[in-house]
Design a protein around this nucleic acid. Sequence first.
DNA 1: GGTAGAGGTTGACGTGACGTCAATGTCAAG
DNA 2: CTTGACATTGACGTCACGTCAACCTCTACC
Lengths: 252, 252
Amino acid sequence: MDWSIQEIAKLAGTTSRTLRHYDDIGLLAPTRIGSNGYRHYDDAALVRLQRILLLRELGLGLPAIGEVLDREVSAPHALRSHLEWLRGEQDRLARQIASVVSTIGALEGGEQLMAENMFDGFDHTQYKEEVEERWGKDAYAKSDAWWRSMSADEKAAWQQRVSQLSSDWVAAFERGVDPAGDEAQALAQRHFEWLRGVPGTPGGGGAGPSKEYFLGLAEMYVADERFGANYGGQAGAEFVRDAMTAYAEREL
Amino acid sequence: MDWSIQEIAKLAGTTSRTLRHYDDIGLLAPTRIGSNGYRHYDDAALVRLQRILLLRELGLGLPAIGEVLDREVSAPHALRSHLEWLRGEQDRLARQIASVVSTIGALEGGEQLMAENMFDGFDHTQYKEEVEERWGKDAYAKSDAWWRSMSADEKAAWQQRVSQLSSDWVAAFERGVDPAGDEAQALAQRHFEWLRGVPGTPGGGGAGPSKEYFLGLAEMYVADERFGANYGGQAGAEFVRDAMTAYAEREL
DNA sequence: GGTAGAGGTTGACGTGACGTCAATGTCAAG
DNA sequence: CTTGACATTGACGTCACGTCAACCTCTACC
């Protein structure tokens, strides 16, 4: 049982380059090195190599594989934490796919690739037509002009406030508070006040948004997945909508 | 509208390092570079940056983003091919998760991390206890001794034959042939002849495997997800099983 | 003994999208 | 003048190798 590097590579279904790499990083040393520098492997090395490749196919990283084979951690333990990461990746992919699908749909519906994230990560201007139809033709233009008129400092401060509001929403949602309770209603009020500060939204700069606009916006948040992404997922957006709806019914 | 690199980074929710990177790769050049070398950006750059970040969140690569923004390809087209990729990744992850789960289960059931891939990517020796119980105590030992007695060349040739058989199975499955038809039955026969060449399997080296062993093996292929992975997935394993079962009923 | 040809070696670059120093220059404020 | 915040370029590290490049070794054949 004495194989050259190519032989053992073929036996295990990998390449000699990979074996040299495993030697370099100390994962699998050759059994013996000839006086000519050639690497030689025996059957114990083949077994170790096949275990390496088995774990590699499961997606483990080479350092983690080394720890398992050298008994520093148990295989089930390593696999279980690896499993968490795999599931996390799967979730991330699922969300990304949903976003891509919805974006393709929006683009094919004739919408433009708009700049997002100016207001709250949710591009209100994306709904230009809808907004114009419902609240007047110059809403978008006014909003845009207002934004462009701000200094860099003002914009940064604005964004700071926006992201604070957003993360407070997420925190409340994750703690599982009641959308109709005091805490969520206080957030809804802040959201209302915030909208009052945005010209281009009906009521912006004045008395604040109308009940209909506020309710419509809440529904749009749920309808567009990209908003949800900034508010803790679809369920987060629904939480925000419920709180906003309750607020509107009570106060507006 | 003239921002420093830090200012525009904050506005868009990214870092100055990222902006320098985008400049380096030609994705987003600063609007103006001062005599001191400082980068400056205007609102057109901000819009472009935000589009970049939007597409980046969907998972597109920076070169692909550049092509979309420079109108070399349409956004829906780019997104659709990206979507294929994402779905492929999702499938790969799902299979990997299934394998990890099954491996954890096997390990916790007291089994060892065995070397696979010696015979057909499916480690028959993993079923040592089952094999011993059903076909005699020395089956595993004989198989192991036989394998170790081969020269490197013989082993490589063996693996070549094995992988040829495997890929022929996959090809037949993917073409959707009838498991009970001539083509699949010819493959089942080759599988039978192949098993006859494996000592340690009942009938190996002699008249060939028994009907019960052949049927049991076919069921094991379906039961273990790792076998399926080498034969075109779960459905592939089922196809192989059906063909083998039909063969056994007809010929053995 | 010369010469292919197959196979071995080390060394180094490339992949993707930046994070993270390191060394150094610039600018406004006190 | 000093301090501190911010700017620059340059270069390494990430992960698991693929892919040359330049060179050495072994076997087979004429």
